[in-house]
Amino acid sequence: MKIIDKYILKRYLGTFSVMLLMFIPIGIVIDVSEKVNKMIENKIPLKDILIYYGDFTIYFANLLFPIFLFLSVIWFTSKLANNTEIIAILSSGISFNRFLKPYIIGATVVSVFALIMGFFLVPSASKGFNDFRYSNLKGNSQTRETNDIYRQIKNENNVSEYIYVSNYNYLSKTGFNFTFEKSIGNKLQYKVSASRIKYDEKTKSYTLYNYKKRTIGKLNDILESYEKKIQKYNFEPDDLTPVIYAAETMSITEINDFIDKERDRGNSNINTYLVVLYKKYSLPVSAFILTIIAVAVSAMKRRGGMGVNLAIGIIIAFTFIFFDKVFGTIAEKSSFSPLLAVWIPNIVFGILAVYLLRNAKR
């Protein structure tokens, strides 16, 4: 590796690291200012708070990773351009493509790091981050994260099973207004209802309160009723977990296994999990695209200086985030292909990167 490669690569990784170290503390300060009253009111131990902000750091860095990377590349490349260092490099006979080499190496390092984080570190951090928020920083009414959870848990050999809860509390593993239905073909076999259902991790069973079961007979229905009944069902507490929360907290192995299990059950409502899975792969690729765009935009010395480059960079970065969020939401809420939705921002900005790079070479 030549001296110029080491010089640019050092600036690439160094500026990106400094950008993270600058903005993450700002995010922590803002978060503390918003939640300090709740922390004092709930008498949360300092150890738990420190663990929470460790998880917050990973969660926050992963969330804004594209913006941090893009702005850091624009920042130091603009400084190189303003100091006429880029002109000197290109005047020495080095082509623009050769000039990009250390940037691509830097993007590779950042991409591998982002891939490892997305596969292993971010799910664990997301779980700790969300658990802390819902157990310590939100009111009791808010710990029931979603309403009206309706899932198909089995669809094979003409047998279908469905579950429903009106509310589910992830932390206490408790659901409310529970219903379980089993059908063969189009005919309902029986229906179980309970005002409350609670999962016991030790026995891997569920306790149903105000249990009622109605079995459909040829002439008469059979009714059962108990104040409390312990049952084992073929579904996990994660099946009752709010979809986005659960998807964010799964490692790459867990989310792949979950998707396979849901497909075997015939459940087509797995787009949210697919979006999270595909983003684990698309986010590292965006590092290369955003790096090329940032270099193409900032390698030229402009009359307005670094400020103009940063303004252009901020607009492009937030447009990328906007595309990413909009198409991800569309895929989660409709039949739009999750794979296409996740990769559309990279495709669109990849085309933009090629166009800007061709102009920069001229």
Rank of each mutant, 00 (worst) to 15 (best):
E262C: 00
L50T: 00
A287T: 12
V109E: 05
A88T: 04
F178W: 08
V295F: 03
S251L: 01
I4S: 06
I74P: 12
A317H: 08
G313C: 01
I40R: 15
T249K: 13
W75G: 04
G175H: 06
I3S: 06
T241G: 02
M300V: 13
M306W: 09
K154Q: 14
I330G: 05
V165F: 10
F322E: 00
I116H: 01
V354S: 04
L283F: 14
K361R: 15
K212Q: 10
Y190V: 00
V122Q: 07
S141A: 11
E224K: 09
K187D: 04
N309E: 04
K279H: 11
N155I: 00
L100G: 10
I153R: 11
Q189E: 10
E34R: 13
N140R: 11
S225V: 05
K43I: 01
N186K: 13
K154P: 03
D324C: 01
M250F: 12
G27H: 08
D131R: 07
F96Y: 11
V326C: 04
K38H: 11
I244Q: 11
Y7W: 13
P123W: 01
T203F: 04
V18A: 13
Y103A: 00
V297N: 11
D324Y: 01
Y53M: 08
Y59M: 06
K198E: 15
L137Q: 02
K232I: 04
L208M: 13
I67P: 07
R303K: 11
E254S: 04
L64D: 02
K10T: 02
K191M: 00
A246Y: 15
G313R: 05
R151T: 04
Q231A: 10
N234Y: 06
L63Q: 13
A353E: 05
I270M: 03
A88G: 15
N158P: 06
I344F: 09
L208F: 01
N271R: 03
N167T: 10
L100F: 03
S193W: 08
N309Y: 09
I116Q: 00
E254Q: 13
S91A: 15
I347C: 04
G350I: 09
F65R: 05
F113M: 14
K101A: 08
A88F: 13
S111G: 15
L171W: 01
A360W: 04
I51S: 14
N83K: 09
T207V: 05
I89D: 09
N83P: 08
K101G: 04
I321H: 12
E254A: 11
S335Y: 02
I259K: 06
N158H: 12
A360M: 10
